[in-house]
Structure formats: C-alpha cells, structure tokens
Design a protein around this nucleic acid. Sequence first.
DNA 1: CACCCGTGGAG
DNA 2: TCTCCAAGGGT
Length: 369
Amino acid sequence: MPKARTNPPEIAALVLDWYDRHHRTLPWRSPPGTPPPAPYRVWLSEVMLQQTTVPAVKPYFEKFLTLWPSVHDLANAPVEHVMEAWAGLGYYARARNLHKCAKAVSEQHGGIFPDSEAGLLELPGIGPYTAAAIAAIAFDEPAAVLDGNIERVLARLFAVETPLPQARVELRKLAAQVTPQHRPGDFAQAMMDLGATVCTPKGPDCLLCPLQARCAAFKRGIAETLPRKAAKAARPVRHTIAFLLQRADDGAVLLRRRPPEGLLGGMLEVPSAPWRDTPWTSGDALDHAPAQTDWLMLNGDAAHVFTHFELRIGAMLGRVAAREAAKLDGQWQQPQEAALPTVMKKMLGLLPTAEIRSTKSRRGGRARS
DNA sequence: CACCCGTGGAG
DNA sequence: TCTCCAAGGGT
C-alpha cells in the first residue's frame, strides 16, 4: 500500500487556490467563499449529475426548480409527473428515488435534509458519493468525496496502478487524507472540476495542472494510462418490432406504462415485440401486436444503445377506429407531445411523415412504407 | 463484488 | 463508425 508522499494540506491548498481562479459558474453552485446553496438545490443537482454530464443536466435542473421550488412541492407531486419531467435524462430509477427521497424528507424530517453524511446515506437514491457531496457542499462537513473525476485525479497524483474497481479501497483512503477541514465543499468541487477540465481521461493538460509538481504519474510519464480499468464485456444486440398503432380520427398513438422496476421502469412505452437476440419476421412479431388490425411492415428501422445492449428496432403500422381504440389497454397520445424515453421517441420516429400529422384530412388513406 | 440501469457528446 | 464515458445507486 503506497504511502502518500506529499503533504495532504498542501494538496488541498493548491487545489483550492486553483479553484478560486478557475471555478465555473453553474446554476446549482455558489461562488467560492460564499454561503452554500440550499440543500434542496445541492441534492437535486447531485442526483441529476449521477453519471450524467453538466450540459445534459442544466435544462432539467431549471425545469425541476420551476415546477417544484421546494422539497415539499416535489414530495406532493404525483410520481407520474416527476417521471414525465425526467423523461430523456436517463437512469429512470433516479427519478423514482428522487420522489421517494423528497417524500421522506418532507414527511419524516419536516422538510429539512439531514446534515450528516450518515443521515443522508439512509435516504433513497443517495449513495456514498452523493451523501459525501451534499454533506461537504451544503453543510460544510469534511466528508471525503469520491467520484469518477476524483478517482482519476487521485490515481494519477499517487500513481495508483491497481485497476478499478479494486483500487477504490485505496482511493477512498487517499481521498480522506487529502480532504481539508476548511472549505471541504469547495475542495470537492475543485477536484471534480480539475478532473473534468484538466486531469481528463484522455489527453490531460498536465502543463496547466496545479498539482503537476506533486503528481507521481506525471513524474513517471504514465498519467494518461491511469486509472487502469478492467476490460469491458462486449455489448450484445437485441431485436424488436415496434407496433405503431394510430387512432384513425386524430392520429394519436397507443402507449403503455412499463412495470415500475427494471429497464425504463415506470416510463411510458410504445408496444413492441419482446426484445430478443434474434431478428423478427413480421409474421412472428404479429403474435405480440396490441390489437387485431391490418398491420403494415415499415421499411425504416432504428437502433438505440443502452448501457449493456444495443436494440435494433423495426416497426409495423396499424390503425384502429376510435371506438376500437377505447377498448385497448394503455393511453393515447399525440406522437410529438408524449414525454418519453429517447428509445421510445426513436420508435415513434419511424412513423411515416404523413402519418405523424392528424390523419383527419386523409381518412381512409393507406399508409406507405 | 457483479450486474443492471440511459443518454448524448467527444475524439 | 466506433469507443469511451459523465458529479453512481440499487440489488
């Protein structure tokens, strides 16, 4: 177990000094040295930022604050509305847990977030990283924050050559050693900014790094090779056929609510044949159609990449009269207006252009592929 | 620990 | 086109 060769307080001082000169202004952040943002804002931003980039989060953060200015507002909102507002951001369990957490804080903590790392850790959707980040940023607690950025900075600073995820034990220890008692929140954000803008995964800009003189990996010329990681598994391909069923009078499409857990849990979906590892023929897929009608195979297709598999999507087009539509399970929405996960929007994107508009003016017309 | 869980941007 | 991966959490 390599020992830190540098003086931890010196590391923090260098990083904080760099942060004072280079910090970025973000909607959920207070400038260095000023009072921290409300815990609600810190929590909301940290959950949204889990495995998600800053540019992707910005508009969602603003939208949520407008819709639900306080944790009570969010707690009192129907979970369906929260899922809808989250649509497109990904990792939908976060939205479910966000709502659960808001209810817990609102109803069990009087609307006040716990101010300790341990207390925060007990809330839904708040894991080790987020608990430490909120404690440090919102409550000025010297919690050791460790995210992907900080892992990279520390792995390089101390030349940790053990591959992830095993290296985490050591990295946690190093994070604790380096975390200062003073301005721990600014320090955590500074380390993450450093990782995001200077100590980047590829092509780190070591010449601009405030820690260059202390960086063991830079000294050995191996900065870019760290942290080491275990090889990833190949991504399998799965196949489905989307059933684009339109209501004849207004062009609305049939959508269904997915089960609450698992992939895209709780989100709306376009009905589709089971996602399997072999391609479908139109005949086989029809066994899974949501209604008996004339189905037309469309020529277009689409693909969507998930974390652990790729989905290839064909589509069939069907049409039912309003009276028949009312009998089917699910809900009818205009294709452009539905708040859907991206993969479902791609399915709707397979609708022939003429079919997306209201079909009122061309009733009886036949779909073409 | 291993696996599951989205998305879009960068190189 | 393809690979990597971003302020991780739940199970």
